[in-house]
Design a protein around this nucleic acid. Structure first.
Length: 322
DNA sequence: GTTGAGCGTT
Protein backbone atom coordinates (compact mmCIF):
# COMPACT_ATOMS: atom_id res chain seq x y z
CA UNK A 1 0.00 0.00 0.00
CA UNK A 2 1.25 3.42 -0.86
CA UNK A 3 1.84 5.85 1.98
CA UNK A 4 3.53 9.15 2.64
CA UNK A 5 6.84 9.16 4.40
CA UNK A 6 8.13 12.07 6.45
CA UNK A 7 11.62 12.95 5.30
CA UNK A 8 14.03 15.69 6.27
CA UNK A 9 17.45 16.60 5.01
CA UNK A 10 18.48 17.68 8.48
CA UNK A 11 16.74 16.71 11.70
CA UNK A 12 15.90 20.33 12.43
CA UNK A 13 14.23 20.90 9.07
CA UNK A 14 10.58 20.81 8.27
CA UNK A 15 9.65 17.37 6.89
CA UNK A 16 8.58 16.77 3.32
CA UNK A 17 6.14 13.95 2.70
CA UNK A 18 7.34 11.54 0.03
CA UNK A 19 5.07 8.91 -1.50
CA UNK A 20 6.01 5.25 -1.46
CA UNK A 21 5.20 2.81 -4.23
CA UNK A 22 2.14 0.53 -4.09
CA UNK A 23 4.34 -2.30 -2.81
CA UNK A 24 5.44 -0.17 0.14
CA UNK A 25 8.96 0.50 -1.07
CA UNK A 26 10.26 3.99 -1.71
CA UNK A 27 12.04 4.63 -5.00
CA UNK A 28 15.36 6.33 -4.53
CA UNK A 29 14.43 8.42 -7.55
CA UNK A 30 11.32 9.70 -5.79
CA UNK A 31 13.44 10.63 -2.82
CA UNK A 32 16.12 12.30 -4.86
CA UNK A 33 13.52 14.36 -6.71
CA UNK A 34 13.01 16.21 -3.44
CA UNK A 35 16.51 15.79 -2.04
CA UNK A 36 19.00 15.88 -4.90
CA UNK A 37 22.19 13.92 -4.30
CA UNK A 38 20.76 11.94 -1.42
CA UNK A 39 21.82 8.31 -1.48
CA UNK A 40 19.76 6.76 1.30
CA UNK A 41 17.76 7.17 4.47
CA UNK A 42 18.27 6.64 8.17
CA UNK A 43 16.06 6.96 11.22
CA UNK A 44 16.54 6.92 14.95
CA UNK A 45 15.93 3.69 16.76
CA UNK A 46 13.30 4.83 19.28
CA UNK A 47 14.78 2.61 21.96
CA UNK A 48 18.38 3.66 21.77
CA UNK A 49 18.33 6.92 19.87
CA UNK A 50 20.92 5.49 17.51
CA UNK A 51 20.58 6.01 13.78
CA UNK A 52 19.55 2.98 11.78
CA UNK A 53 20.15 2.69 8.05
CA UNK A 54 17.34 1.85 5.67
CA UNK A 55 17.79 -1.13 3.40
CA UNK A 56 18.39 -0.17 -0.23
CA UNK A 57 18.01 -2.83 -2.93
CA UNK A 58 17.99 -2.16 -6.65
CA UNK A 59 17.02 1.47 -6.28
CA UNK A 60 14.26 0.80 -3.77
CA UNK A 61 14.27 1.70 -0.09
CA UNK A 62 12.50 -0.80 2.10
CA UNK A 63 10.43 0.12 5.15
CA UNK A 64 12.05 -1.00 8.41
CA UNK A 65 9.20 -3.06 9.87
CA UNK A 66 6.96 -3.52 6.88
CA UNK A 67 5.60 -0.01 7.18
CA UNK A 68 7.14 3.43 7.24
CA UNK A 69 4.80 4.78 9.90
CA UNK A 70 5.00 8.26 11.34
CA UNK A 71 8.71 7.96 11.95
CA UNK A 72 10.93 10.79 10.80
CA UNK A 73 13.50 9.76 8.21
CA UNK A 74 16.70 11.62 7.55
CA UNK A 75 18.49 11.78 4.22
CA UNK A 76 21.96 10.38 3.91
CA UNK A 77 24.40 12.03 1.54
CA UNK A 78 27.47 10.59 -0.08
CA UNK A 79 30.92 11.19 1.20
CA UNK A 80 31.00 13.27 4.32
CA UNK A 81 33.75 15.52 3.13
CA UNK A 82 35.50 17.60 5.67
CA UNK A 83 34.98 15.02 8.28
CA UNK A 84 37.87 13.40 9.97
CA UNK A 85 37.44 10.30 12.02
CA UNK A 86 36.11 11.22 15.41
CA UNK A 87 34.25 14.29 14.29
CA UNK A 88 31.07 12.38 13.75
CA UNK A 89 29.45 13.37 17.00
CA UNK A 90 28.59 16.93 16.29
CA UNK A 91 26.25 17.75 13.50
CA UNK A 92 27.19 21.31 13.00
CA UNK A 93 24.59 23.48 11.37
CA UNK A 94 27.20 24.63 8.92
CA UNK A 95 27.03 21.25 7.23
CA UNK A 96 23.84 22.04 5.45
CA UNK A 97 25.00 25.48 4.52
CA UNK A 98 28.10 23.89 3.18
CA UNK A 99 26.12 21.80 0.78
CA UNK A 100 24.18 24.80 -0.29
CA UNK A 101 27.37 26.68 -0.86
CA UNK A 102 28.37 24.03 -3.32
CA UNK A 103 25.43 25.06 -5.41
CA UNK A 104 27.63 26.98 -7.78
CA UNK A 105 27.69 26.63 -11.48
CA UNK A 106 30.43 24.58 -13.00
CA UNK A 107 31.37 23.84 -16.55
CA UNK A 108 29.13 21.13 -17.92
CA UNK A 109 30.21 18.63 -20.50
CA UNK A 110 27.82 17.91 -23.34
CA UNK A 111 28.31 14.35 -24.56
CA UNK A 112 27.20 12.86 -27.83
CA UNK A 113 26.89 15.96 -29.97
CA UNK A 114 26.29 15.44 -33.65
CA UNK A 115 29.43 16.04 -35.65
CA UNK A 116 27.80 18.93 -37.42
CA UNK A 117 26.69 20.80 -34.32
CA UNK A 118 28.38 24.17 -33.91
CA UNK A 119 28.72 26.49 -30.97
CA UNK A 120 25.95 28.61 -32.42
CA UNK A 121 23.71 25.57 -32.52
CA UNK A 122 24.56 24.79 -28.92
CA UNK A 123 23.97 28.34 -27.82
CA UNK A 124 20.61 28.37 -29.53
CA UNK A 125 19.58 25.20 -27.83
CA UNK A 126 20.90 25.75 -24.32
CA UNK A 127 20.01 29.40 -23.94
CA UNK A 128 16.44 28.32 -23.31
CA UNK A 129 17.62 27.05 -19.91
CA UNK A 130 19.26 30.29 -18.82
CA UNK A 131 22.05 32.70 -19.47
CA UNK A 132 25.13 31.03 -20.88
CA UNK A 133 28.61 32.15 -19.96
CA UNK A 134 30.49 29.46 -21.86
CA UNK A 135 29.79 27.50 -25.01
CA UNK A 136 32.41 25.28 -26.62
CA UNK A 137 32.55 22.53 -29.19
CA UNK A 138 35.78 20.57 -28.92
CA UNK A 139 37.44 20.02 -32.26
CA UNK A 140 40.43 18.26 -33.62
CA UNK A 141 43.07 20.96 -34.00
CA UNK A 142 44.25 19.56 -37.32
CA UNK A 143 41.05 18.80 -39.12
CA UNK A 144 38.80 21.22 -37.28
CA UNK A 145 36.21 18.50 -37.04
CA UNK A 146 34.07 18.23 -33.94
CA UNK A 147 35.05 15.64 -31.38
CA UNK A 148 31.40 15.10 -30.60
CA UNK A 149 31.38 16.80 -27.23
CA UNK A 150 31.54 20.27 -25.82
CA UNK A 151 31.06 22.40 -22.76
CA UNK A 152 28.54 24.88 -21.51
CA UNK A 153 28.31 26.93 -18.36
CA UNK A 154 25.31 28.78 -17.01
CA UNK A 155 25.33 31.78 -14.76
CA UNK A 156 22.30 30.52 -12.88
CA UNK A 157 22.53 27.36 -10.83
CA UNK A 158 18.84 26.61 -11.32
CA UNK A 159 19.47 26.53 -15.05
CA UNK A 160 22.34 24.14 -14.49
CA UNK A 161 20.24 21.84 -12.34
CA UNK A 162 17.46 21.76 -14.90
CA UNK A 163 19.90 21.15 -17.68
CA UNK A 164 21.64 18.17 -16.15
CA UNK A 165 18.39 16.60 -15.04
CA UNK A 166 17.33 15.65 -18.55
CA UNK A 167 18.55 14.41 -21.90
CA UNK A 168 18.78 16.80 -24.79
CA UNK A 169 17.78 16.38 -28.38
CA UNK A 170 20.31 18.45 -30.29
CA UNK A 171 20.33 18.43 -34.07
CA UNK A 172 18.66 15.05 -34.05
CA UNK A 173 20.79 13.24 -31.49
CA UNK A 174 20.17 12.62 -27.82
CA UNK A 175 22.91 14.17 -25.74
CA UNK A 176 23.82 13.99 -22.08
CA UNK A 177 24.88 16.96 -20.02
CA UNK A 178 26.77 16.39 -16.83
CA UNK A 179 29.51 17.57 -14.52
CA UNK A 180 32.80 16.59 -16.13
CA UNK A 181 34.80 13.82 -14.48
CA UNK A 182 32.55 13.64 -11.50
CA UNK A 183 31.03 10.74 -9.74
CA UNK A 184 27.87 12.75 -9.16
CA UNK A 185 27.67 13.35 -12.84
CA UNK A 186 27.95 9.75 -13.84
CA UNK A 187 25.43 8.72 -11.23
CA UNK A 188 23.06 11.17 -12.73
CA UNK A 189 23.47 9.64 -16.12
CA UNK A 190 23.08 6.14 -14.79
CA UNK A 191 19.78 6.53 -13.07
CA UNK A 192 17.80 6.83 -16.30
CA UNK A 193 19.45 3.77 -17.72
CA UNK A 194 18.95 0.05 -17.39
CA UNK A 195 21.46 -2.67 -18.00
CA UNK A 196 19.99 -5.60 -19.90
CA UNK A 197 21.86 -8.81 -19.31
CA UNK A 198 21.56 -12.26 -20.88
CA UNK A 199 20.61 -10.85 -24.27
CA UNK A 200 20.61 -13.21 -27.19
CA UNK A 201 22.26 -12.20 -30.40
CA UNK A 202 19.04 -12.00 -32.35
CA UNK A 203 17.69 -9.22 -30.16
CA UNK A 204 18.18 -6.00 -32.05
CA UNK A 205 18.22 -2.44 -30.82
CA UNK A 206 14.90 -2.05 -32.53
CA UNK A 207 13.50 -4.98 -30.56
CA UNK A 208 14.68 -3.49 -27.30
CA UNK A 209 13.26 -0.11 -28.12
CA UNK A 210 9.86 -1.37 -29.04
CA UNK A 211 9.72 -3.73 -26.08
CA UNK A 212 10.81 -1.24 -23.42
CA UNK A 213 8.74 1.57 -24.85
CA UNK A 214 5.79 -0.16 -23.22
CA UNK A 215 7.12 1.01 -19.87
CA UNK A 216 8.06 4.56 -20.68
CA UNK A 217 9.66 6.81 -23.24
CA UNK A 218 12.91 5.28 -24.45
CA UNK A 219 15.46 7.86 -25.47
CA UNK A 220 18.42 5.62 -26.21
CA UNK A 221 19.39 2.03 -26.89
CA UNK A 222 22.93 0.80 -26.97
CA UNK A 223 24.18 -2.64 -27.97
CA UNK A 224 27.95 -3.14 -27.82
CA UNK A 225 29.51 -4.60 -30.92
CA UNK A 226 30.65 -7.27 -31.29
CA UNK A 227 27.97 -9.20 -29.50
CA UNK A 228 28.52 -9.35 -25.76
CA UNK A 229 25.12 -10.52 -24.50
CA UNK A 230 24.11 -7.27 -22.88
CA UNK A 231 22.67 -3.90 -23.80
CA UNK A 232 21.61 -0.61 -22.32
CA UNK A 233 18.36 1.22 -22.60
CA UNK A 234 17.84 4.79 -21.42
CA UNK A 235 14.44 6.14 -20.43
CA UNK A 236 13.39 9.75 -20.31
CA UNK A 237 12.13 9.23 -16.79
CA UNK A 238 14.51 7.87 -14.13
CA UNK A 239 11.60 6.44 -12.17
CA UNK A 240 10.77 4.12 -15.06
CA UNK A 241 14.31 2.81 -15.17
CA UNK A 242 14.59 2.33 -11.45
CA UNK A 243 11.24 0.62 -11.16
CA UNK A 244 12.57 -2.15 -13.42
CA UNK A 245 15.78 -2.95 -11.61
CA UNK A 246 15.93 -6.60 -10.70
CA UNK A 247 13.23 -7.73 -13.10
CA UNK A 248 13.36 -10.46 -15.71
CA UNK A 249 11.70 -9.89 -19.06
CA UNK A 250 11.06 -12.13 -22.02
CA UNK A 251 12.12 -10.62 -25.32
CA UNK A 252 11.85 -12.72 -28.46
CA UNK A 253 11.66 -15.80 -26.28
CA UNK A 254 14.79 -14.97 -24.32
CA UNK A 255 14.71 -14.19 -20.62
CA UNK A 256 16.80 -11.09 -20.13
CA UNK A 257 17.68 -9.59 -16.79
CA UNK A 258 17.35 -5.90 -16.03
CA UNK A 259 19.55 -4.22 -13.49
CA UNK A 260 21.05 -0.86 -12.81
CA UNK A 261 23.64 0.48 -15.20
CA UNK A 262 26.94 0.71 -13.40
CA UNK A 263 29.41 3.37 -14.35
CA UNK A 264 32.11 2.09 -16.62
CA UNK A 265 34.88 3.43 -14.45
CA UNK A 266 34.38 2.43 -10.91
CA UNK A 267 36.31 4.25 -8.27
CA UNK A 268 39.40 2.54 -7.17
CA UNK A 269 38.56 0.72 -3.98
CA UNK A 270 41.64 1.89 -2.16
CA UNK A 271 42.41 5.50 -1.95
CA UNK A 272 45.59 6.24 -0.18
CA UNK A 273 47.35 9.36 0.83
CA UNK A 274 45.59 12.64 1.31
CA UNK A 275 42.78 13.13 -1.07
CA UNK A 276 43.82 16.00 -3.21
CA UNK A 277 40.86 18.07 -2.26
CA UNK A 278 41.07 21.31 -4.07
CA UNK A 279 40.17 24.19 -1.87
CA UNK A 280 37.90 25.68 -4.45
CA UNK A 281 34.93 23.59 -3.60
CA UNK A 282 32.33 22.84 -6.17
CA UNK A 283 31.84 19.42 -7.65
CA UNK A 284 35.45 18.67 -8.03
CA UNK A 285 35.54 14.99 -7.35
CA UNK A 286 38.55 14.15 -9.36
CA UNK A 287 38.53 10.45 -8.76
CA UNK A 288 37.10 9.12 -11.92
CA UNK A 289 39.77 7.61 -14.04
CA UNK A 290 38.85 7.72 -17.62
CA UNK A 291 40.35 4.90 -19.56
CA UNK A 292 43.67 6.46 -20.41
CA UNK A 293 44.68 3.84 -22.90
CA UNK A 294 41.71 4.12 -25.18
CA UNK A 295 42.31 5.80 -28.45
CA UNK A 296 38.85 6.09 -29.85
CA UNK A 297 40.27 6.63 -33.28
CA UNK A 298 37.31 5.02 -34.96
CA UNK A 299 35.36 8.09 -34.20
CA UNK A 300 37.30 9.99 -36.78
CA UNK A 301 37.16 7.47 -39.53
CA UNK A 302 33.78 7.56 -41.06
CA UNK A 303 30.20 7.61 -40.05
CA UNK A 304 29.24 4.62 -42.06
CA UNK A 305 28.25 1.87 -39.73
CA UNK A 306 28.73 -1.80 -39.64
CA UNK A 307 26.05 -1.85 -37.01
CA UNK A 308 22.62 -3.14 -37.69
CA UNK A 309 20.86 0.18 -37.96
CA UNK A 310 21.27 3.31 -39.90
CA UNK A 311 21.89 6.54 -38.16
CA UNK A 312 18.70 8.10 -39.24
CA UNK A 313 16.35 5.33 -38.28
CA UNK A 314 15.47 7.02 -35.02
CA UNK A 315 17.12 10.31 -35.60
CA UNK A 316 20.11 9.19 -33.64
CA UNK A 317 22.99 6.87 -34.05
CA UNK A 318 23.43 4.96 -30.89
CA UNK A 319 23.32 1.81 -32.86
CA UNK A 320 26.63 2.32 -34.47
CA UNK A 321 29.77 3.17 -32.74
CA UNK A 322 30.32 6.62 -31.73
C1' DG B 1 30.19 -14.50 -22.86
C1' DT B 2 25.56 -9.83 -17.24
C1' DT B 3 28.38 -3.03 -17.33
C1' DG B 4 29.19 1.15 -23.40
C1' DA B 5 30.75 5.69 -24.71
C1' DG B 6 32.39 10.50 -24.67
C1' DC B 7 35.96 14.21 -20.48
C1' DG B 8 38.61 20.29 -21.90
C1' DT B 9 46.06 22.43 -26.10
C1' DT B 10 43.84 28.08 -22.86
Amino acid sequence: MSEYIQVVEDENDEPIEIPSEPDGTLLLSTLSAQFPATCGLKYRNPETGTFRGIRLVEGRLHPPEGSWGMQLYVCVFPKAENKRKGDEGQENPAAKTKRLDQAKCSDLIVLGLPWKTTEDDMRKYFSSFGELILVQVKRDPKTGGSKGFGFVRFSDYEAQKKCISQRHLIDGRWCDVTIPNSKEGSQHLMNRKIFIGRCSEDITAEDLRSYFSKFGEVVDVFIPKPFRAFAFCTFADPAVAQSMYGEDHIIKGTSVHVSSAAPKNFDKPDRRGGSGSSGGGGFNTSHSNYNPGYGGQERYGHHGNNASYGEDMYGQSSYGYR
